[in-house]
């Protein structure tokens, strides 16, 4: 199970970097190469020092790069895949940071299996929704966008409260 997690982590790091690089390079932005090398270096640091802030900073950097790519008319699909893979890397780095019990017990393997299962489910749904929505092209007014965001945020908060039976 540990091997599978490591494999997924390294795969997602590679997918993130390759997707980001391909998107930018196909659009002719060669200046991205040093930035990508820097990102790879930062991911290595985040993996070696798995603190929340280190991993989160690299993830935010990746998402900003993806956002800049989208506004610069770089392939949307590549950016979505790159940021999603970066998110998976972030999650697995933080998961490996947790101090687990010694030894590779059944309970620990089960814990890891459940985590990977849930992560796989969330990422599959998220990626599918993102890719599907990228095929639509809506032109909405700024006010309507704000309203939709507020409704979505409220719905999410309500949903979470309902599920966790906790009040914020």
């Amino acid at each position: 199970m540990l091997k599978l997690r490591t494999t997924i982590l390294y795969s997602s790091l590679i997918i993130s970097t390759v997707s980001m690089g391909s998107g930018y390079l196909l659009a002719g932005y060669w200046q991205i190469v040093p930035v990508l090398l820097l990102m790879v270096f930062l991911w290595i640091i985040a993996k070696a020092q798995p603190t929340f802030w280190a991993a989160s900073s690299v993830l935010v950097g990746n998402i900003i790069l993806a956002g800049v790519g989208i506004t610069s008319k770089v392939s949307l699909e590549f950016m979505i895949v790159a940021s999603t893979a970066a998110f998976v890397s972030w999650d697995l780095i933080l998961f490996s940071r947790d101090k687990l019990s010694d030894g590779l017990s059944e309970a620990k393997i089960a814990l890891e299996r459940q985590h990977l299962k849930s992560l796989g489910l969330a990422i599959s749904i998220g990626l599918m929704l993102a890719l599907v929505s990228s095929t639509f092209d809506f032109q909405l007014a700024f006010g309507a966008v704000v309203l939709l965001v507020l409704i979505a945020f409220g719905g999410l908060v309500f949903g979470m409260q309902y599920v966790t039976k906790k009040k914020l």
């Binding site: 950016m79 940021s83 749904i125």
Partner: peptide, 20 residues
């Protein structure tokens, strides 16, 4: 669009949160 995976991640977590 970039936030869809993150939202899905949050919702998956919330749905499976322990209640007891």
């Amino acid at each position: 669009m970039l936030t869809f995976p993150i939202l899905a991640y949050l919702v998956t977590g919330a749905i499976q949160a322990p209640t007891e």
